[in-house]
């Protein structure tokens, strides 16, 4: 995957690894990096599209801003009262007026050529192999895996615990949300009380958790690792203290985790025992789940 211009300079700095004790192997952790100036490294295809689109926009807006700055500096020097004692009196020039109306329109049309496809990709949820429901509460996240029968409550580590385990304070939690790598995951997001928002920047997702509504989004993370996110809708005193930690693990490890939480494995796979279940992948499903040939 191509990284943009800021990316290439900072790619090294952005992906950081620190040995997390208590986890079998050293894991890649993706979250905010001190001093970084760009987006977090993309962990999903959608996030990569966002990053590319943002790079494109950054070029455009930087050019526009510098153009305006250059014009301002030019008129300040060329037409200051020392250099130009007698002002001209013109007030119209049809040509330039047409240009500065039409050119911005063209730029915006150009932008929308990229904007809408990205939006469609985010909003059209492909066929998913795993469904997870994130439920916001004041002030913690609950995760429920309806097909596996797993329900967990995720609380941030206290400062002492985080220090003791060498984990990042205000990001690490006691019960992370586990997902298998390379699988389409459908996130259902809702709330039990006030509005929260479930977001993982490196996945390119953010979905408001609104009481009485179930919002949907999706992601597919190919690379194993730990990814951090935040509650991003003001929800009261501890709004800043309900972080999101997602562990993307191998399928085998995910299964072990489901079992350790007392969940049912069978339905974790795309219904090997239920050929009647709708298996036709949506046309835009990427990648389509592998449907097992032999019915149970």
């Amino acid at each position: 995957m191509k990284r943009g211009w800021i990316g290439s300079a900072l790619a090294q700095a952005l992906v950081y690894t620190f040995a997390a004790t208590g986890i079998a192997a050293a894991q890649t952790e993706t979250g905010p990096v001190n001093g970084a100036i760009g987006l977090q490294p993309a962990a999903t295809e959608v996030a990569q599209d966002i990053a590319n689109f943002h790079d494109l926009l950054l070029w455009i807006i930087t050019a526009v801003t510098l153009f305006v700055l250059a014009l301002l500096l030019y008129v300040m020097l060329r037409f200051n009262k020392g250099a130009n004692p007698t002002p001209k009196k013109f007030t119209h020039n049809l040509t330039v007026e047409v240009i500065w109306t039409v050119v911005p329109v063209l730029i915006l049309v150009f932008i929308s050529l990229f904007s809408f496809p990205l939006l469609f990709k985010q909003e059209r949820i492909p066929q998913a192999e795993l469904t997870i429901k994130a439920i916001g509460n004041t002030w913690r996240w609950d995760y429920s895996y309806p097909d596996q029968g797993v329900d967990i409550t995720s609380l941030p580590l206290s400062e002492e615990d985080a220090k003791a385990q060498n984990r990042p304070f205000r990001m690490a939690v006691d019960e992370p949300m586990y997902v298998p790598a390379g699988v389409n995951v459908r996130m259902l997001v809702t709330s039990n009380d006030v509005i929260h928002a479930f977001s993982v920047p490196s996945f390119g997702i953010k979905e408001d958790a609104v009481p009485g509504r179930i919002n949907e989004t999706w992601f597919n993370v190919p690379k194993e690792g730990i990814y951090y996110g935040f509650c991003q809708e003001l929800c009261g005193t501890l709004h800043g203290f309900m972080p999101i930690e997602v562990r993307v693990v191998s399928k085998a490890e995910f299964e072990r985790w489901v079992q350790s939480k007392g969940g049912q494995l069978a339905s974790a796979e795309p219904a090997p025992a239920a050929p009647a279940a709708p298996t036709a992948p949506a046309p835009d499903a990427t990648p389509a789940p592998v449907a097992p040939a032999t019915p149970g």
Binding site: P32, G38, R170, C231
Partner: peptide, 23 residues
């Protein structure tokens, strides 16, 4: 604050992880 936002720092946080400290 543009950098902080691109890195994902949420608004209306009284405290934040160390990754947002510098800016």
């Amino acid at each position: 604050q543009h950098f902080l936002g691109l890195q994902g720092m949420p608004r209306r946080y009284a405290d934040y992880p160390d990754g947002f400290a510098y800016w």
